[in-house]
Amino acid sequence: MPSRPAQEDHTVVLNANGLSSFYGNRQILHDVSLSVAQGEIFVIMGASGSGKTTLLRHLIGLSTPNAGEVTLLGNPLSSITKPKLYELRKRIGVAFQGGALINSMSVIDNVELPLRQHTSLDDSTIRIMSRMKLDMMSLHDTENMMPAQLSGGMLKRAGLARAVVMDPQLLFFDEPSAGLDPVTSAELDELIIGLRNALRMTVVVVTHELESALKIADRVMVLAEGRIVALGTVEEITQSTDPRVQSMLHRQVRDRQPVGEEYLDHLTEEDDI
C-alpha cells in the first residue's frame, strides 16, 4: 500500500456547485457538487453513460454546464475570458483517454509542445525537461516515434507525460486504466500516486475501474445516471449500504428491465411528433 501523506492544507483547488447538464432533451447531470483539496487524489467513478466524461469536460472548461458553477483554482469558469482561461490552463494538466497526441508530430515534439508554446526556454532545456517526463513514464526509447506506432498503454503514458510537462498544480486524468492489461494499469496507478507524493500535485481521476479507484483514491465520488450516489473516503465507500454502490462493488448486473404494464407500454410506444 503506498503511503498517503497527511494533508497539510485544505485549500480547495477545484469546486463544482450544482452542475446540471443536458444533451438535447436528455439530462446528463443532475445537481452535481464536489470539492477537491490541494494534494488530494479524487476519483470520479461511474459506469459508462453515468455522465462522468461530461462532468470532466465541465470541470476543465471544455464545455459549459446548463446550470451550476465550476471554480478552478479560485476562478469561476462561467464568467472567465478566453485569455484568462488559457492562463489558468497553463497551471492544469489534462491526460485524455487515448492520449490525444497530435498525430502529425513525434512523441517528443508532442511532449515539448506546451513548453515551446508557453516558455522561452532554449531548445536543449526543453529537450531535457521533456525527456525527464518521458523517462518518468518509461518511454525513453519512443521519443522519435510517431503516435500511430505506439500501443494503447504507451499513448496513454505519453499523454500523461505531456500533461505534466509544465508541472501543473492540478492534473486531470480520464480513464487511466481503460483498455489496458492489469500490469500496465497498475503501473499507471503507481505513477499517479508518485506524481502526487513527489510533486504534491492534486489529481482528479475519472474511471470505471473499481480496483484502481480504491487503490489510488483519497476520496471517491460515485456517479450513477448523472447523480452522486456516494461521496467519501475509500473506507466510507466500501462500507456504504447504498444498493447502487454495493452492486458496483460486487459487480452485479444492473436490474433495468421494466415490468408488466410498463414494459408493454414501452414496446407499443409510438413516436408522437
Partner: peptide, 8 residues
C-alpha cells in the same frame, strides 16, 4: 480538446 487544455 487537448490543444485547448494545453492553452494552445
Amino acid at each position: 480538446d487537448a490543444l485547448e487544455c494545453m492553452a494552445v
